[in-house]
Simulated assay, not measured.
Amino acid sequence: MIRLKDKEFSDIVQYMRDEYGINLEKKKVLIECRMSKILERYGLDSFAGYLDMVHQDRSGEMAGEMVNHLTTNYTYFYREADHFERLQDAILPELLGHSVSGTLDIWCAGCSTGEECYTLGMTLEEYKRIRNVTLRTRILATDISGKVLDKARDGEYPVKELEGLPPEWRRKYCGDTSGRTFRVDEELKSCVRFQRRNLMDPMPASERFDIILCRNVMIYFDRISRNRLIKNLEDALKKGGYLLIGHAELLTIKETRLEPVYPAVYRKKKE
């Protein structure tokens, strides 16, 4: 295994914090273990050489690869189920009651391999069926890693990830689940637009959302980066829009201008 020198470690920690808001101050061993094989694949014998290549890569793919290996893409379908229940019971009816166009813009920020945005798509379909309403949605799903976005677009997953999903949803949206893997319904996949984006970059003013899901992402951030992300998310919300975060990431009054309305759910004031 290629050893990580103190100066290299310091440089990587600084780079990841400045560019992506990720705090790796106590992750020296993790960096060595997860990145050594990547360095060997590129024919490198030092982390300094790898970081130089990352800086020179204008496409951003190497940086995305680095983020992908140094963070845990742990997710599954119907994770933190009460959020999806709250969407159906309260959030969607409230937003549609005030919508002129009947169209909702939704952003899954830090979507990882896609389980969250596809669960969201199923939730929306079920809401339309149960309520017998017309609902048009535009779902944007973003992540910094091109590799995880490729997996999300492909839509193939291990069957074990379906354990928490309602049986009826499995039958409707998950195709053949008799083997070791399954594929998400093509019509459901067509409802999601995937894009590579850095959460540290502000969303363009032309893109504003009724609902933002940014769940279990802030756990990697230090206080300064977390505050920067929160501001970006607040600015990207429409007035009256909702932000859903992980239950382990609750915001304090000092951190946000949004008002808490449900557990790990916040709303932007309408005025």
Rank of each mutant, 00 (worst) to 15 (best):
H247D: 13
R86T: 11
Y42V: 06
L95Q: 09
G179A: 15
E187F: 04
E207F: 09
E80V: 09
Q88S: 15
K28V: 00
S46P: 05
I212Y: 07
R58I: 14
G64N: 08
K172L: 13
R215W: 13
T123Q: 11
T72M: 08
I230V: 12
V159H: 00
E187R: 11
Y50R: 03
G49Q: 04
S36F: 13
S46V: 05
L87M: 12
E25T: 14
H69Q: 12
A48T: 08
P202W: 00
R215C: 03
E259S: 14
G64C: 11
I139L: 12
H55T: 06
D185F: 01
E168V: 07
P167M: 04
K268L: 12
Y15R: 05
Y127F: 15
C111Q: 01
K254R: 06
L124Q: 07
C33E: 11
L39D: 09
R215E: 07
M122E: 08
E126C: 10
F47K: 02
E8S: 08
F77C: 14
W169N: 10
R79V: 14
V29F: 15
Y50M: 04
S178R: 06
L124V: 02
A205G: 10
A109M: 04
L44V: 11
S225Q: 02
N198T: 06
L95N: 13
H69T: 01
